[in-house]
Nucleic acid binder design. Structure first.
Length: 866
RNA sequence: GGGUUCGUGGUCUAGUGGUUAUGACGUGUCCCUUACAAGGACGAGAUCGGCGGUUCGAUUCCGCCCGAACCCA
C-alpha cells in the first residue's frame, strides 16, 4: 500500500539493485529474431574521465528509448562500452602507477592499463546503475580488451585486403609535442598571438625596371631554410615583374623560383609569399601543383635539421629567435609587428601542428565520398536536420583518413615489413590479435624477394579506427577462417545510434565507412542526435568556465526520477539548459503521481476487479480518452519527441485524470469505478515508466504486480476500444468547469451546495456525476433551446474559404460588413456585391439571459444556476 | 570566412499562411475541498528580434539586417 510520503532515497536504490540482481534488462539472446530485436549502439564513454552531466542527459534519453521499446514488445539490447583504449587511459595508468610506458614492453604496459582502468570502469558502472539506466550488464565491452583488439586488427586486415588501405610517404599533419601523425579531424583552429616579420629577399638579377629585391611577410621565419619558392598572385600588377625570376633566401642562400598562383592572399603583407616544406596546407598544395623541391627543415620533435645549417638542433621556437636576430644584423629584417592569427593546433594538447613528410597508413575515403553520403542518407535521422551537417562535413574532406599513430601504446598494426624490399607482411586473421613487436610474422621469407628478416611495424592504430567499430563489437563480428560472421546477426544494422551533436560528423563518418566497408550495409537504422547540456544561462558547460554541474551533487538533492523528468523535457537535437525548476517540476509530478495513487488505492479493493458488463458513462469516457492519449504518446515516443510525449502525458494525467476524473469519482464505490481506476492507473504507470522509472515500479509492485515481474518488462498499453460518448463527456466536464468558475467568481468554497441547476445540452449519463461533484441539490437537464436571447454582434468570415475565392475583394467585403452594409438571406450573406455560402462565414453573437438565476456559458452548453 | 540552427508574455517553451497565439515557472485574487496548500479555482501579463518582399491575409514563406549557439575553414 502506498502510504505517507514517497521516499526516493530508499525506493530508488532498492529498485536499482533489484533490476541488476534480477537481470531485468538482460537481452534474450536465444529468443531474439531480427524482427523483434532492438539494439542501441551506446557510445562508450572514456572511463578515465569522470561522469558529467552531459552523460546523465544522454544516457537518460537512451534509456527512455530502451524502456519504451522493451515494453513495446522488442527484445532490447542495451549494451555498455568502456572506452579505455587511448592516450587518456595510458596517461592515467602512468600517473597511478608512477611509471613510464617507454619502460615496458607494449603488451605488458597494456596489461597494466587494463588493471588500472578496471577501477574506473567500476565507478562508471555504479553511476549508470544509480541513474536507473536499463543497461544489460551482461553485455559490456572494453575497448582495451583483447577481443576488441582482435576486431580492430581484423578490420585493418579486411580493409587492406579490399585495397582500401595504403601506406605512403606524404605530407602528414604532425604534432611535434605528441610526436605523432594525427588526422585532419583531430586538429582545430585557435587564435594565437604572434609576430609578422617583413623580410627582404634579394633577386639573383635585377628586373627590367631595375628592382633588385622584394619583401615577404611571414609569422614563421624559422622556415626560411625550408623555403622552396616564392609566390605572387596573377592579378598583382605591382609584383608581376618578379614572376619568372629567382630569389636568394637571406642567411641560407638557397635560390628559389618566383611563381604566380591564384592561391596567394594579396591582402596580407606585401602580397608576395614564401612557400616552405611545409608551413601550412597551401604549401602542400603548391608543392604538389608546381612540383617543388622538398627541403625538410623541421624534424619530428620540432627541431631544426641539417638543412638549417648552423641552426641545426635548435627547437623551432629557439631557432625563430636566433634567425630573427641574425636577419636584423644582416639588415634583412624590414619590420616586425605583433599580430593575432589563427593557427592549426592539435585539439588534444593545443600545440601548433607541423606538416611533415612521413610514411603513414591511410584509409582511402576521398574516392568514395559520394557513396558514404548516400549511405548516410539511408539512415533515419532524429532530428532530420542533422543530416545536412553530415553532408557538409563530407563535402569538406580533403585528406584520406590517416590511421597510423607513432605512439607506443594502443592497438598495434598487425604488420611487418621485409627487411630488404619493404614488402608488407600482414598478420594471418587466425592469429589476431598480434603485436609485431613481440610476435613473429606469419612468413619465414619475404614472398617477393625471399629475404628472411623482417621489421615490425611499431605504429598503433588511431583510436577512432577502433571506436568506429562498436556496431561490429556489439554484433560479435569475427572471421571463422572462411568468412566474416557475426554472433548476433539479428541486431545488425543496429536500430539506434545516439550521440551528441558536437561530434556527429566525426564518429558517424568513421563508423559508417568502416562498418559499411566490412558488411556492405549501413551500421544504423537510425541516429538520434542529442543537444548539449547548457548551464542556467544557456552557456555550454565547460571546466574552464567553471559552470559544470556535478551529477553527484544534483542527485544528492533530487530523486533520479526528477532528473529523468528534466532530461525528457528536450526536443531531440536541441540544447537543453540545466534548470533546477525543471527538476522541481519532476519532483512535483512524482508527488502528484504518488498521492493520486494513494487515492486510487483507497478507492479500490485489493483484488483485481473484472470489467463490468456495463461501464458507467464517465468511466467509459475516461478510458476512451486515455486510449486516444496512448495513441498520441506512443507516436511521440516512436519519433523520439520526448518533450511532447512527456508533456502530453503529464497534462492528461494531472488535468483530466486527477483534476477532472478523480474529483468526480472519488466518492463512488462501485465496480465500474473500481475497474476503471485500476485499469487507468496501471496504464498511467506504464506510460510514465520509461521516464519515471523508479516511482512507477514502486507503485506497480505495490498495487498491480501479481508475480513480482518488473513493470519495465510489461507490455505497453494497447487501445481498449471501449464505446463512449466522448462529446457528452466533454460537455459534462465543461458544465462542471462552468460551475466551478461560478463558485470561484462568487467567492464560494467549492463544496458550497447549489440549489437548482438547469443544463441545456446533452450530458446523458453524466447527470449524477455533475450533481455530486458540484454539490447540486437538483440538476435539471432540459430538452430544446435555452431560454436565452442571442444578439448578433458581427460577422466572422471564414478566411480559408473567402480568401482563396475572392482574393483582392476581401477588403471590400470586410469594409461592407464593418459598416453594416450587408444582408443575410436564406443563410447566405450578401455584401459588396458577392454572395457568401453559409460555410464561408459565421454570425458572431452574444447570449443574454433575463430569467431567474444566473446564466453560465459552458461552451455549447448553457447552464443556469438558481 | 562558409554552413546549420535558433530568436514567441518577466523566465523557459509549444505552435500555425486565416477567429481571442500553447503550456510551464514566476506573479495577483480566492478556496483548509476527507490524495496532494509542494494542492485547487480564477485572473493579469506578448507590437511572435528588426526592416523589406510575396499574399486578400505573414508570428508562420522569401530576402536583408541585428543578436545567439554549434559545426567546419
Amino acid at each position: 500500500m502506498p502510504s505517507g510520503e514517497y521516499d526516493p532515497d530508499t525506493a530508488e536504490p532498492t529498485w536499482q539493485k533489484r533490476w541488476v540482481d534480477d537481470e531485468t534488462y538482460a537481452y534474450p539472446d536465444a529468443a531474439a529474431d531480427p524482427d523483434t530485436a532492438f539494439s542501441i549502439d551506446t557510445p562508450p564513454p572514456t572511463v578515465s574521465g569522470s561522469l558529467h552531466w552531459g552523460h546523465v542527459y544522454g544516457s537518460i534519453l537512451q534509456d527512455i528509448v530502451a524502456r519504451y521499446h522493451r515494453m513495446a514488445g522488442n527484445d532490447v539490447l542495451f549494451p555498455f562500452g568502456y572506452d579505455d583504449n587511448g592516450i587518456a587511459s595510458e596517461r592515467l595508468t602512468e600517473r597511478e602507477l608512477d611509471i613510464r610506458h617507454q619502460d615496458y614492453e607494449r603488451r605488458e604496459f597494456q596489461q597494466r592499463c587494463r588493471e588500472i582502468c578496471l577501477e574506473y570502469e567500476q565507478e562508471f558502472t555504479e553511476k549508470m546503475q544509480a541513474m536507473g539506466i536499463s543497461i544489460d550488464w551482461n553485455n559490456t565491452y572494453r575497448t582495451i580488451s583483447e577481443d576488441v583488439q582482435r576486431i580492430s586488427q581484423l578490420s585493418f586486415v579486411d580493409l587492406y585486403e579490399q585495397g582500401r588501405e595504403y601506406r605512403k610517404k606524404a605530407p602528414a599533419i604532425w604534432c611535434p609535442e605528441c610526436e605523432t601523425a594525427i588526422s585532419q579531424v583531430e586538429t582545430e583552429d585557435d587564435e594565437r598571438d604572434s609576430h609578422f616579420h617583413d623580410i627582404e629577399f634579394a633577386l639573383t638579377e635585377p628586373t627590367a625596371s631595375g628592382r633588385d629585391s622584394f619583401v615577404i611577410s611571414t609569422t614563421r621565419p624559422e622556415l626560411l631554410p625550408a623555403c622552396v619558392a616564392v609566390f605572387v598572385h596573377p592579378d598583382d600588377e605591382e609584383n608581376a615583374e618578379l614572376v619568372g625570376m629567382d630569389a636568394e633566401i637571406p642567411l641560407f642562400g638557397q635560390t628559389v623560383p618566383i611563381i604566380e598562383d591564384e592561391r596567394v592572399d594579396m591582402e596580407t603583407g606585401s602580397g608576395v609569399v614564401m612557400c616552405c616544406t611545409f608551413g601550412d596546407q597551401t604549401d602542400i598544395e603548391w608543392y604538389q601543383a608546381h612540383d617543388l623541391d622538398l627541403r625538410i627543415a623541421i624534424d619530428e620533435s620540432g627541431h631544426l635539421t641539417d638543412v638549417a645549417g648552423e641552426y641545426e638542433g635548435q627547437s623551432s621556437t629557439d631557432a625563430r629567435e636566433s634567425i630573427v636576430a641574425d636577419l636584423e644584423a644582416a639588415g634583412a629584417l624590414v619590420d616586425r609587428r605583433a599580430i593575432t592569427h589563427t593557427v592549426n593546433v592539435h585539439e588534444r594538447c593545443g600545440t601548433g601542428v607541423e606538416f611533415l613528410v612521413t610514411k603513414q597508413w591511410y584509409i582511402e575515403v576521398l574516392d568514395k565520398k559520394q557513396e558514404y553520403l548516400e549511405a548516410g542518407r539511408e539512415m533515419e535521422w532524429f532530428p532530420e536536420k542533422m543530416f545536412t551537417r553530415y553532408e557538409h562535413w563530407i563535402d569538406g574532406l580533403q585528406w584520406d583518413w590517416l590511421i597510423s599513430r607513432q605512439r607506443s601504446s594502443g592497438i598495434p598494426f598487425p604488420v611487418w615489413y621485409c627487411g630488404d624490399c619493404d614488402t608488407e607482411i600482414i598478420a594471418a586473421k587466425d592469429d589476431l590479435p598480434v603485436d609485431p613487436l613481440s610476435d613473429e610474422p606469419p612468413a619465414d621469407a619475404c614472398p617477393e624477394c625471399g629475404h628472411e628478416t623482417f621489421v615490425p611495424e611499431s605504429d598503433v592504430l588511431d583510436t577512432w579506427a577502433t571506436s568506429s567499430l562498436t556496431p561490429l563489437i556489439n554484433s560479435g563480428w569475427d572471421h571463422n577462417g572462411e568468412e566474416f560472421v557475426m554472433d548476433r546477426p539479428e541486431i545488425y544494422p543496429m536500430d539506434v545510434r545516439p550521440q551528441g551533436h558536437d561530434i556527429i560528423s566525426f564518429w558517424l563518418f568513421h563508423t559508417v565507412i568502416k562498418c559499411y566497408e566490412h558488411t556492405g550495409e549501413v551500421p544504423f537504422e537510425s541516429v538520434m542526435i542529442n543537444g548539449m547540456v547548457l548551464d542556467e544561462n544557456r552557456e555550454k558547460m565547460s571546466k574552464s568556465k567553471g559552470n559544470v554541474v556535478d551529477p553527484d551533487a544534483v542527485l544528492d538533492k533530487y530523486p533520479v526520477d526528477a532528473a529523468r523528468f528534466w532530461a525528457a523535457g528536450s526536443a531531440i537535437g536541441d540544447d537543453l539548459p540545466y534548470q533546477e525548476k525543471g527538476l522541481r517540476a519532476g519532483e512535483k509530478l512524482i508527488r502528484k503521481l504518488w498521492n493520486a495513487s494513494k487515492l486510487v488505492d483507497s478507492l479500490t479493493p485489493d483484488e483485481r476487479v473484472d470489467q463490468p458488463e456495463e461501464l458507467r458513462a464517465i468511466d467509459a469516457w475516461l478510458l476512451a480518452a486515455l486510449d486516444e492519449e496512448i495513441e498520441v504518446i506512443t507516436d511521440r515516443l516512436e519519433h523520439r519527441e520526448f518533450s511532447k510525449a512527456r508533456d502530453r502525458l503529464r497534462t492528461f494525467f494531472w488535468g483530466t485524470f486527477c483534476d477532472d476524473y478523480l474529483e468526480i469519482v472519488k466518492e463512488r464505490d462501485d465496480n465500474s469505478a473500481a475497474y476503471t481506476l485500476q485499469t487507468a492507473h496501471e496504464r498511467f504507470l506504464k506510460l510514465f515508466a520509461p521516464i519515471l522509472a523508479h516511482v512507477t515500479e514502486e507503485l506497480y509492485q505495490d498495487m498491480h504486480a501479481t508475480d513480482g515481474e518488473s513493470l519495465h518488462t510489461q507490455p505497453w498499453p494497447e487501445p481498449l476500444d471501449i464505446a463512449a460518448d466522448r462529446a457528452a463527456g466533454e460537455r459534462a466536464i465543461e458544465v462542471i468547469g462552468a460551475l466551478r468558475k461560478y463558485k470561484s467568481d462568487n467567492g464560494l468554497p467549492l463544496n458550497t451546495e447549489l440549489g437548482t441547476v438547469e443544463v441545456y445540452g446533452d450530458v446523458a449519463g453524466f447527470e449524477d456525476d455533475i450533481q455530486r461533484v458540484m454539490q447540486v441539490e437538483e440538476l435539471a437537464v432540459r430538452e430544446g433551446d435555452a431560454p436565452i436571447e442571442t444578439v448578433q454582434t458581427g460577422i466572422d468570415l471564414e478566411y480559408s474559404i473567402v480568401g482563396p475565392t475572392y482574393g483582392g475583394q476581401v477588403p471590400e467585403i470586410e469594409a461592407a460588413i464593418e459598416s453594416g452594409d450587408y444582408e443575410i438571406e436564406d443563410g447566405h450573406l450578401h455584401a459588396a456585391g458577392v454572395e457568401l455560402d453559409p460555410e464561408a462565414f459565421s454570425i458572431e453573437e452574444t447570449r443574454q439571459y433575463s430569467g431567474d438565476g444566473e446564466f453560465l456559458d459552458a461552451g455549447e452548453t448553457i447552464v443556469i444556476v438558481h
